[in-house]
Design a protein around this nucleic acid. Structure first.
Lengths: 348, 348
DNA sequence: GTGAAAGCGCTAACAT
DNA sequence: ATGTTAGCGCTTTCAC
């Protein structure tokens, strides 16, 4: 534990420099409109006293915080196990840094956490929030709305089409459904007839949309060919085992993401099925450290995750800049959907 | 982007409830010393208005924030790839939650980030900081000292023995050196004579301490048997390749952590060396998802990472509670070092 | 038990 | 160009 000396105030600096508080404030905030000799005097006083502005006091009057919260509604274990978040965070981080804005990461595991995060957001610690990985029954959107903090969502929020409210939710997503369609069409194009789908957790729109894309192509697929997973390798293993038991004749699998595809791949190999000869396999995300390292490397649907993060941050910041301007419905787009592309590797 | 309605203030609640601001404040902060009927009236007004206290205003007077920062001095990509951080964060998170304290995660990648984090800490956004993964040349400790924020470090800080300052740094660490000794002794006990060490990044004390432990046992080891890694699987692969080239007769490897051990294992198998028959291998950390999943499972040195996190948080919070009391040198221990244990699995 | 009033440290009009 | 002043929204003596 380090000492906590009570910090010097503007007042102290002003006294030391022999000027008014207002002048010190001006210098500290850029020094425009203050003559050079004074600027120097103040700067020296600041230096000598080790003055750092008290943000609470500053925010109280400016109502700005130069910080935005990133809220991830997943347990740490998942957040840290899934490169998806790392990539998105990296995009966000770059964009925020460029705007000299601090990223504050809030992880929410249980219901208590939700309440605390709600208080944090409503308490005016941040100028805005970027929210990820919402689940269908998540109380977070309500809390956020209540908090009145400008928010951009990562992934289409699950509560209807966003038109329920006066201001539709702003979100960034990739074309999950279209990407899924492309993947399944590719499998069909390969001549596969027993095409299965290992889904993600169906309380998330990304998983639902990918399932819908699968169904768009496999209009009357044997329902046993759809097995629920959870975006994790372990879930992929479990789902694949179940699938092989239910439908030993399966000849193609579209997994909802690369992580579950990697799990499925392990099971396939373990049970002596060759990929892609016996069973063709496609993932989703194009998470390089996963998709390229598997054996065989994964054919997958690519989305630019880092770019999504960057875009979310940009949307939020530009929205913040435009505060107070007439926010016509034409102002901010409700949702930005980025394209996906099929990346062919060896697994399908 | 959601609407930003200007939030109701204490004043508004007071007006609505027909009481004074002071009374509302009392109710909001627990309601002691306010008679029941008033409490109810105020509560209802709070409810109706959706009032949430403005933290900036509150902090300005109380000087408390009910939030602590966790600073990790690593790029996101590493933070999110290494389960170590997830575990530690989980321990911290649990402890903080129990004290109704918000965890604010700050990741610092480059030098600009350092400055911003320094400003954030000094700006009085948090009551304290937990700092990890410091590197030898890190400017962070200086910034933190300057910020005057109570801090507990994860891992022994690298700047001397901590006695350079009036208040020695508080930290939590595991017995890296002792654990390393145990691992190497075990290898020697197995009859191995060409025992190598794949180090971690030597600008971190944990890596240095493990190397020292290795040297404690292998007093005059062939210097070529020590190869530098970086705690990552890729680094482990690289180091292992180099090692096999330099010393093809190596018969045991102590890797600085499980992640690099897993990389080393891949290379060993790829080059046709059987583990443990030809080369015995030991890791460090006992990171379950890694150590148990490898083939063969890793013998490793266990440290209770989650407990370390919990302990760090507890130390910080108890220090915060004791503010102002005479902080005698006997008050807070400078460093807490947790024991390690050797976990035998199949790799050695 | 409750209210009135004084600030916490800062910025932003408004004077000068 | 610089100083003066009035709050930002809250907690906390201090009277009543």
């Amino acid at each position: 534990m380090t000492e906590t000396a009570s910090r010097p105030t503007l007042e102290a600096v002003a006294a030391r420099a022999g000027v008014s508080r207002a002048t010190v404030s001006r210098v500290v905030n850029g020094g425009d409109g203050v003559r050079e000799p004074l600027v120097a005097r103040v700067r020296r006083a600041v230096e000598e006293l080790g003055y750092v502005p008290n943000q609470a006091a500053r925010s109280l009057v400016t109502k700005r915080h130069d910080a935005v919260a990133v809220v991830i509604a997943e347990p740490e274990t998942r957040v840290f196990a899934d490169p998806f978040f790392a990539l998105q965070l990296r995009g966000i981080s770059k964009e925020l840094t460029a705007h000299d804005c601090q990223l504050v990461l809030l992880l929410t595991e249980g219901r208590d956490d939700h309440a605390r995060v709600g208080r944090y957001l409503a308490g005016g610690h941040v100028d805005g929030a970027l929210v990820f990985s919402l689940h269908l029954d998540d109380p977070l959107p309500g809390l956020i709305r209540g908090a009145g903090v400008p928010t951009v969502f990562g992934g289409r929020p699950g509560w209807g089409d966003g038109t329920r409210d006066a201001a539709p939710a702003v979100y960034v997503d990739c074309d999950n459904r279209g990407g899924a369609r492309a993947a399944v069409r590719h499998l069909v194009g390969l001549g596969r007839t027993r095409v299965a789908h290992l889904t993600g957790p169906l309380d998330q729109t990304s998983a639902v949309d990918r399932l819908d894309g699968f169904r768009d192509v496999m209009v009357d697929a044997d329902p046993r060919l759809v097995v629920q997973g959870d975006f994790t390798p372990a879930g992929g293993e479990r789902a694949m085992r179940e699938l092989l038991e239910r439908c030993p004749d399966v000849d193609a699998v579209f997994a909802a993401n690369d992580l579950s595809a990697s799990g499925a791949l392990r099971v396939l190999r373990e049970q002596g099925r060759r990929v892609p000869e016996d069973v063709a396999l496609i993932g989703f995300d194009d998470m390089l450290p996963v998709a390229e390292q598997t054996d065989p490397p994964l054919t997958t649907v690519r989305q630019d995750i880092e770019e999504m993060g960057r875009l979310m941050a940009r949307l939020l910041l530009s929205g913040l800049d435009r505060r107070g301007e007439a926010a016509g419905p034409a102002g901010t787009p409700a949702g930005v959907v980025l394209p996906t592309t099929l990346v062919r590797r060896a697994s399908a």
